[in-house]
Computed example of a mutant assay.
Amino acid sequence: MLKKHLPLILLLNVTGIVLYLSWHLPAGHGAWFTLDKDIFFWFNDRLTSNKPLLWTIAITNFRAFDVVSLLAMGGLYYSYWRQQTAQGRRRMFAIGITMLITAVVLNQLGHLLPDSRPSPTKFFAHVNHAAELTGIPAKDSSADSFPGDHGMMLIIFACFMWRYFGLRAFAISAVIVLVFGLPRLMIGAHWFSDIAVGSMSVVLVCLSWWLLTPASDWLLKLVYRYQPYKFQTTNDH
């Protein structure tokens, strides 16, 4: 498997490294900062003039709304779970645990990058805050927004769905990434490059070695073997 996918792994690694360096090396982050600023102010300037947009952004960034994103991912996963035999469900449980462990580890690795910065709502002075305008305790700022951990979790889920369930599952997952990743950008809790550079560079480099080699399957089999008895089937004994 490694030999077959090695050219693709190397390509993804080079892409991830070049992507990160294109942001990290230029003074003030170069063209990325201009793009980041334009995207932020396009939404921020409209928070006072477009009430439906304001309330949509505030509601979708309320902490409790994160449950909706979990339900969306869980619903997609459950749709595949329902189609499985008892043994297949046991394997899906192992895939889920493997995905969770991967997400935690990659999130920690992402924060080892030698960069940190506040969200645009903290970086720029005299900007609109959705939480203040609506009274909803929405997450509209962050002391350290790079890389985008929320976006990274969503992307990791999409990649796992592609690896273990195919392109159709990935396509639906990609919609979930967009729907639940965009609100963080729209409210100003993250810069565009927090996700497009920070999250993506970590995923491209690390997840390529994890999913396109036997590594993730090794952990999956380990979890499969030692998962709690109630998730085992009688055929496993």
Rank of each mutant, 00 (worst) to 15 (best):
Q84L: 08
G96K: 09
T98N: 06
M186Y: 02
W32Y: 04
F165H: 11
Q108Y: 14
L112N: 09
I155K: 07
R163P: 09
T121K: 01
M99T: 11
L178Y: 07
F180Y: 12
T60Q: 05
K139M: 13
F157N: 00
G75M: 10
H5G: 12
V203H: 12
I57N: 05
H150L: 06
V203C: 14
W81F: 09
T48P: 06
M153H: 15
F160D: 04
Q87G: 15
R163Y: 12
A125S: 12
A189Q: 05
R184D: 00
I172P: 00
V127S: 03
L35N: 00
D217T: 09
I39A: 09
S22C: 04
R117N: 04
F93M: 10
K37A: 04
G74C: 06
R63P: 13
R91T: 07
V127E: 01
G166N: 01
V177P: 00
M99S: 15
G28S: 01
D115G: 14
M1F: 14
F192D: 02
S201K: 11
Y226C: 10
Q232T: 15
L25Q: 14
D140N: 05
F123Y: 15
W162P: 05
M73R: 11
M200T: 14
S119G: 04
G151A: 05
T98M: 09
D217H: 14
K4P: 10
S216M: 05
W32F: 04
T134Y: 02
F40Q: 02
D149I: 09
M200A: 14
A169R: 01
A58R: 00
